[in-house]
Design a protein around this nucleic acid. Structure first.
Lengths: 336, 336
DNA sequence: CTGTGTATTGCAACCGGTTGCATTATAGCA
DNA sequence: TGCTATAATGCAACCGGTTGCAATACACAG
């Protein structure tokens, strides 16, 4: 707490010769208060640059105007999810800012579920933002049971009825594949995500659709799954090269995997993009800053973050649940 | 707020047939309470998995057990500072977690200084964590004037008396340079940070020391400043190549600049690391995932985050200010 | 058996806001 | 002038904890 002289609405009340309820109402722009009085009070508050005590207000209003961003706590290091999560978090933060909500980081430990009660039942936060995860459903259920408002980044799961925001994975898959077709590639492989992953499924569907639209056939030998990590990008690419040594393009479902794939390709003596064109997904910072800048499908992180913020707050206030999918675009750099 | 039946200590009090003060004390492990009573109350609380209302507690205790992580709000996109900041934030989060403190993101708008009062005088947070910035002092002054506890990531500024945590920049500079010397490079250039930047100054001093220790001379033609952004890495490298076409190594003060530098080198027809070895600084995610993995000086982000958390909380509780510099290490990958 | 000390517990005020209801003043109208 | 509708403000309870101090009980020494 600060060291200022005027710290409570009661102090202001004395200065203005009114009661503290009047000050409270004035500062909250209540229509009950005489406009002149209101201005006078506001001026006094301004002059002493008064700040209301938020714990008190929160207690009284039974809300915290804070939402929790749920992250996994790692002993050390990062995963891809983290990288994307970290980038989107910043966008969420500024989205919330405009709505006068705050963003609290919630670290949950591996198999701990107490965080939900800890933060929600204690009145610490009014809602949650979750990144899609393998264990997504488990947490969804937890939060649904608590009747806690939350929003999920990812494809809506029919079982959970929470708001969602997600990139247009299907279009993304199509954009990437169409680009590879357009630049004249003949054998276009697909390096996907985990089978259960709804995002990856849609991207794959986009790939297939684009292929079929172009009159091509879907060849299972050109398709393999990964798990978004670098290693799986490498092993996935190796498998593809074994099965189809003459492939000349690959659409990889994540940037980090794409970088792994590129390494394998180069080690095998081929060049990117001359021999094999590579398109990634997500447009993480590493795509831009990579030494061989990645052609990739760009998720609109800014817009997504803002929508996550807005729709969660809406859901907190009104209970409305929304599902929105935000457009993606292809960013052509050097890898394809 | 949840939908549970037992929500306040008063509810627990009724169940346990005691007064609410007794419950409060029991739950806070006060030594005033009879051990048996205490256990009984705790059991009841446990059974109903009771969560205390934090706004209420915070109001009463006049503290929030929350610290603010101050970030710049960007209209869009990221800067290098952000990348490092984002990575360290995660570490800070888990550090605070162990101390039962929460982490709140604070977005400050360009030339707005109200955030400080907004969050501190309102009792929203008990202290702040700042990343070193060009405008570091301005904010330092602001916070000092408010008598707000805060901790800074960066070299301690003699004018501000706040706790700090910083990497060992001098050693980092030496490690990088010594490595280049060890692998037999003859003309080692230095691509630094902004002149006013204390970190960069120390890294430069490390470079110079290592050079002198090895019996080499410091050649101003081998040194140029940058601003940590990719572009400055490119232009800096161009200047160096013009001034000294036959240089065979460069120590770059930041990973992002290093990637820019590598691009320029490769465009000029030379190879990395064969013709010119490149060492970066920070070991950001992009260093690992870069297509040409970067040899770089690794800041111990995990430890730094934890120390930022611990020392800030200590400073909040006791007023003690500490300065710690955490060791760095050289990570040899492929660029040198 | 009384006095003093110690261990437990409860009462009630307080933290700093919000808000339902009562109160007062003023205006409008018959 | 008397009466009611309306605007502006104040009173006091409440949100759910914490904590100083009083109260009670029981122990042990004198």
């Amino acid at each position: 707490m600060g060291t200022k002289l005027v710290k409570t609405i009661e102090d202001i009340a004395k200065l203005a010769n009114v009661s503290k309820s009047t000050v409270s109402r004035a500062l909250n722009d209540s229509s009950l208060i005489n406009p002149e009085t209101k201005e006078r009070i506001k001026a006094i508050a301004e002059e002493h640059n008064f700040c209301m005590n938020l714990p008190a207000r929160n207690l009284s209003r039974r809300q915290s105007c804070t939402v929790g961003f749920v992250t996994h706590s790692h002993q050390c290091g990062f995963t891809v999810e983290d990288m994307f999560g970290l980038e989107i978090m910043s966008a969420i933060g500024s989205g919330l800012d405009e709505l006068d909500y705050d963003l609290l980081m919630i670290h949950m430990k591996p198999r701990d579920t107490s965080w939900a009660h800890q933060y929600f039942d204690s009145g610490r936060v009014d809602g949650f933002i979750l990144m899609k995860t393998g264990r997504g459903h488990a947490y969804s259920k937890l939060l649904s049971d608590m009747k806690a408002p939350y929003i999920l980044w990812g494809v809506p799961d029919p079982e959970a009825n929470c708001s969602t925001v997600t990139g247009d994975n299907m279009s993304g898959g199509m954009l990437a594949t169409e680009h590879l077709i357009r630049i004249g590639r003949k054998k276009i492989a697909f390096l996907g995500g985990p089978e259960y992953d709804l995002e990856a499924q849609l991207r794959q569907k986009g790939y297939e659709t684009a292929m079929l639209n172009a009159g091509r056939t879907i060849d299972p030998k050109l398709m393999v799954n990964g798990d978004y990590l670098m290693d799986s990008g490498m092993t996935g690419m190796k498998q593809l090269l074994e099965k189809t040594p003459d492939l000349d393009a690959v659409f990889v479902c994540g940037d980090v995997m794409a970088i792994g794939a590129i390494e394998v390709i180069q080690n095998s003596g081929k060049r990117v993009p001359e021999d094999i064109a590579v398109v990634g997904y997500d447009d993480l910072a590493i795509a831009t800053y990579n030494n061989l800048p990645l052609t990739t499908v760009k998720q609109n992180i800014q817009m997504s973050g803002k929508l996550l913020a807005q729709n969660l707050v809406q859901s907190i206030k009104t209970g409305v649940v929304t599902h929105v999918t935000v457009p993606v675009e292809l960013v052509v750099r050097k890898s394809a």
